[in-house]
Amino acid sequence: MGLDAKLSSWNSLWVAVIFNVFVWNPSRLVAFDPDCPSQDRLFVPSPPLELRLPFPPQTAYLVIQGVGGRFSHYGMNYYAVDFAMPEGSVVCAAAAGRVVCVQQRFKTNTMDPTARTRANRIVIDHGNGYFTQYLHLLHNSALVKEGDIVTQGQPIGRSGNTGYSSQPHLHFQLQDTLGQSVPLRFADVPGDGVPMEGKEYISQNKATTECKTIVSSPFPRNAFLQNGIEVYTTTLPGVLIPTDRIYRISGKTLARSTEGVIFLLPPEGGTPLWSQRFPIQNDGSFDFDFTFQGLRAVAPEWSTELHESNPFALAITLVDQNGSYWSDVSVPVFLR
């Protein structure tokens, strides 16, 4: 989730967070050249991902909110689709991939928008910067765990009514590495493949035993250009990050500063839970090693189980002369 957090080294208790500041701009689409490994895929990579409706074949559900829906499909969620599914209905993977997030501990729903991060969900990485998110799932209903490889059509959980939700339904979206929803098309939706609000669609998402090679999406090296940070190389593995390793990041700043910082926030924003500052050379370059040592001790409700992920928002930015720092953007990550 994109966020704008103003942080102070002398007063870490004061943090202002504004959600959905990252605005989708179709002119910023990035095409990926497989012969150019240094090229990043932050928005919509190519070739397109073939999706099928996220429920069992021959079942049909009504779209109660489509792309750009007035109730809640704006900003980060603009291209999402909501299907009216009774609680306990089977949810299937729209495409093959690797599970990077499972949250299933939440039990209730509310009309309080601040509960957006308290909805049960599953996130699947399809490689090349493509992810699908399945939201508002039933409490303790996940049929997969973090790190699992899933095939298209495989049951992954059951629909519910958790978090910021007015009725039982499945919120589905295709998204990039920042969590920004991107245009989607389903192979089993007639016409242009885009589900329309008020229409019912029959799934042709037949489960398959074919297991394709899944290459995890890389860490988005151009994610922090808005913060004046350009990452050249990093050993961070992407969005699913083990905490028992030493990582390295190198790059260059786009603005003058003598110090930078990498930090983790709760997914809803707030006070940083972990941070590490690093020096910047006179030519603007930086190269530093770091670990996530101490994070588990300060993270609320740290889970050691693969059936419950540990979500965070990660950012890298410059430190001001007065010691404060802020970020226009963050990357959703899941630490283990």
Rank of each mutant, 00 (worst) to 15 (best):
V331N: 00
V44L: 13
V30S: 06
I156W: 01
Y78L: 13
L13D: 13
A80C: 10
W274C: 01
G163F: 06
T235D: 02
F186A: 04
E301W: 11
S324E: 11
N282E: 11
L335V: 14
T114R: 15
L7K: 04
G198A: 10
N25M: 04
S330L: 12
Q175E: 14
F312M: 10
Q103M: 13
N128V: 11
N222C: 12
D283A: 10
T208A: 13
L138R: 07
P237L: 13
S72P: 08
F288I: 00
T151E: 02
T271R: 15
Y247S: 13
Q58K: 15
L174V: 09
V23G: 00
I280D: 01
Q133V: 13
W24M: 10
H307F: 12
Q204H: 14
F83R: 02
G323T: 10
G179C: 02
P155M: 05
R245V: 04
V91G: 03
D287F: 03
W24Y: 15
V261H: 01
A93I: 06
I149D: 08
T235E: 10
P56H: 14
L225P: 03
G97K: 05
N120W: 08
I149N: 03
R277W: 00
A16Q: 15
L306S: 11
N77S: 15
S285A: 08
P237T: 07
Q154I: 05
A5E: 08
F186Q: 10
Y130D: 00
I124Y: 12
L135D: 07
P332I: 05
S181P: 06
Q103P: 00
S89R: 01
R118V: 07
I214L: 14
V239D: 06
G260P: 09
R296N: 14
S257A: 15
L254A: 09
P190W: 04
V21A: 02
L53C: 05
V298P: 06
T233R: 15
A5K: 06
T233K: 13
T291L: 02
G97P: 06
V21R: 14
G160T: 05
V100H: 02
D192I: 07
G2C: 07
V23S: 03
Q154W: 02
V194W: 09
E50G: 08
F22K: 14
P37R: 13
W24G: 04
L13E: 08
I262Q: 02
Y79V: 03
G160P: 01
P26F: 12
L295Y: 10
L264T: 04
R28Y: 07
D244C: 05
E230I: 06
T110Y: 02
R245Y: 07
S141T: 08
V90S: 02
D125G: 06
R121Y: 07
L225G: 10
C92H: 01
P311K: 04
V102A: 08
S159V: 01
D82S: 08
L143S: 00
F334D: 02
I18R: 15
T110K: 03
T209E: 12
L7F: 12
D33P: 04
H73Q: 10
A315E: 07
L62D: 07
L295M: 09
E268F: 09
T209L: 14
I18V: 15
A187N: 11
A94I: 12
S327C: 03
N222I: 12
F43N: 03
T108P: 00
N77V: 09
